[in-house]
Amino acid sequence: MHAGVVHAPDSELALVFAKEQYGRRLHSASIWVVKTSEIYSLGYENEDMFETTPEKVYREASGYKLRDKINQFKKDLKHAGS
């Protein structure tokens, strides 16, 4: 997970700075650093590629409202049994 950006003269110090800035609160297992110039990015001008993503609830299990149907089915079964 990308934690943030640090300004450092070399990789080793970047790790030290990153440990201080981004590894001081929540649990961390490791840290890695990469030069910003080595990162090939989509760029914020393409942010619109993600615009509709939050609407795509069909990609999540929670996007399928089945609970009511299951409860109704169980109820029907009970009634059928009694």
């Binding site: 590629m49 615009e51 509709t52």
Partner: peptide, 12 residues
Amino acid sequence: KKIHGELKYHVL
């Protein structure tokens, strides 16, 4: 306008 970003990705 809404789906332009999706199409940009398809083209990419």
